[in-house]
Design a binder for these strands. Structure first.
Lengths: 326, 326
DNA sequence: GACAGCACTGCAACCGCTTGCATTAATTGC
DNA sequence: GCAATTAATGCAAGCGGTTGCAGTGCTGTC
């Protein structure tokens, strides 16, 4: 039913190759012929079949985007930015959700490999070596992980975590808990490393709690442990956990920030709207999405650049952190 | 570099058609041959190229999902559910964002048409007639809109709005505002219709404010108007607007729910976490995503069923609504 | 012993499009 | 005025698969 290149060729009385060139190499076809072909195409509602074209050119004009959890509010701004940037370059985006499962992740990359020009792997849970292997099957850009030899966009959470811990220590907190994220998360390891390095400054004592599910539920689940641990401040792997934790603490009768200070990471929209408003480290997720797409698209031109982009983070002090109580 | 069907054929000493059948019609292939082919395929890392297959079969095993705004927290649960349901049927999902723009929407449908088995149009902003026209180019399932002759999944927001208004009227509110959504939104019209019908019960007087941007910002923007209007309760087009409105009212020194009761629609995750917690109408977005995918996939089997599914909504009373002040 | 029937496999056309090469006609250089 | 360019188009192979049809060798039947 939909018009093919042959229909247009027939309608305009030229060979299909001329129709093809009208769209992919207009300068090779006579002006008059071109406009006649275009008119016919228009009239028939012809649009070239990208998949068929890809079969021979090897370029699909599609991008794969794999995230751990679409519903985690951290990701939508990234997805949105990536999609919009991709479309600016005339690309469409496949979005897939791994549910934090490394095996699903691998499957997805393989399923996508043939119909995309590259895959954006956001906060992957796979091992580095597996990712390297997959990168030989399809161009990959990794977000929130640093792997030698692979193009990557990372947000400098280590720096952010340090800012947050400085902030807490500056408020007089001497016993601080770090609530980590899921196993396999590079970000979580980075934060942990930064926190342990900050601990060595001797200004506070660090308790590490984890690994945990990076969700509100995961945050709520550690509330008791926080209470028992006798810490006065907490830095959580992400805002969602921080918010869940605040809820959990609330349920235990502990007040934030009077009894316990809580800080998160990501600055998701939500964190401005909770009460108390969440102190957090803002990560430039939209910028990361755009940068990753740009990197993928430019990378496919000249494949030597295995650039790394590191985006700065920023501490946003709101109401969930305060001076340690006497 | 990646293995093709020809590589596998050569390695296993059979014709490519036998390899093809090994995967798409195994029962036609001798057991031994089959396992030999499978072994070779495995070893070469062969995976059939879906796009090439689609060229001849007409089935892509891809689905398009078009939403108004990925970053609007209403959509991620829907996207997630759709993606997961699609994958259960071995389909991958293209996600695209229209930024609430009808023209972009049309372009996207056309761009996707050739490489998907169908498109899920969520909360479309296009005209009905345009949608009908597009549905002749590619199978469409519409979500949050009812169009005669097209398969659709709708959430019964009219009923939900009525529940919310009953609730408010029951609390003694006599002057209620309805803050509507964007132009072109079927949902917004439905809500408005339901509200106007409820007004006719004579229990309250309705003020309609809109159209508005369906965002937090859009909600905040009407705060002053609410204040001036002298209404004591507000039903907003969605939670995001309700939350923005609460912020705006807060900035004006009005307390929720003491001075103004605020109710939203959607029950996004966020609404449980604000203070006060938002009274809202829960819409089954995940169920809608699943249902839409199911409908699309079954529809493509027997194309006569142009089913309509209407999903029930539910009032969730929390803390942002209360009795009218004396 | 001839033949129908079956299981298996190969052949080749085709899906919609691109692209290197050949062909033709018109233009240019000398 | 003729060879050499150049511009415009056609031809046909091929991208990675699927599928109707035909062929091959067996088995079972009478």
């Amino acid at each position: 039913m939909p018009a093919t290149i042959r229909d247009v060729a027939q309608a305009s009385g030229v060979h299909i190759s001329t129709v093809s060139r009208t769209f992919s190499a207009p300068h090779l076809v006579n002006v008059e012929t071109r406009s006649r072909v275009q008119a016919c195409a228009e009239q028939l509602g012809y649009r070239p079949n990208r998949a068929a074209r890809a079969l021979i050119t090897g370029r699909t004009f599609n991008i794969g985007l794999i995230v751990a959890d679409i519903a985690n509010p951290f990701f939508p701004p990234l997805i949105k930015a990536a999609e919009s940037q991709a479309r600016r370059h005339d690309h469409l985006i496949f979005v897939a959700d791994t549910n934090e499962d490394a095996v699903v992740e691998e499957d997805l990359v393989r399923a996508l490999a043939k119909q995309v020009d590259g895959v954006l792997l956001c906060s992957p849970r796979m091992s580095n070596s597996l990712i390297e292997q997959l990168s030989r099957e399809v161009p990959l850009v990794v977000v929130n992980r640093s792997i030698a030899g692979l193009p990557a966009v990372v947000m400098d959470v280590a720096q952010g975590a340090q800012l947050a811990l400085d902030h807490l220590a500056g408020l007089g907190h001497r016993r601080i808990a770090l609530v980590t994220g899921p196993r396999g998360s590079w970000t979580s390891r980075e934060i942990r490393r930064a926190a342990q390095s900050a601990e060595r400054s001797g200004r506070f004592e660090l308790t590490v709690i984890g690994p945990n599910q990076p969700t509100e539920h995961g945050g709520r689940a550690v509330a008791e442990q926080i209470q028992r641990g006798g810490v006065t401040a907490v830095l959580a792997y992400n805002d969602l956990m921080a918010i869940g934790l605040m809820e959990g603490l609330d349920a235990l009768g502990l007040r934030v920030p009077e009894d316990v200070s809580v800080a998160g990471i990501d600055d998701i929209t939500l964190s401005r709207l909770t009460r108390p408003k969440l102190t957090t480290v803002a990560t430039p997720t939209a910028a990361a999405g755009r940068a990753a797409v740009d990197m993928l698209l430019s990378h496919s031109d000249d494949r030597r650049t295995t650039a790394h982009v590191s985006l700065h983070t920023e501490l946003i002090v709101r109401d969930s952190t305060g001076p340690v109580s006497a």
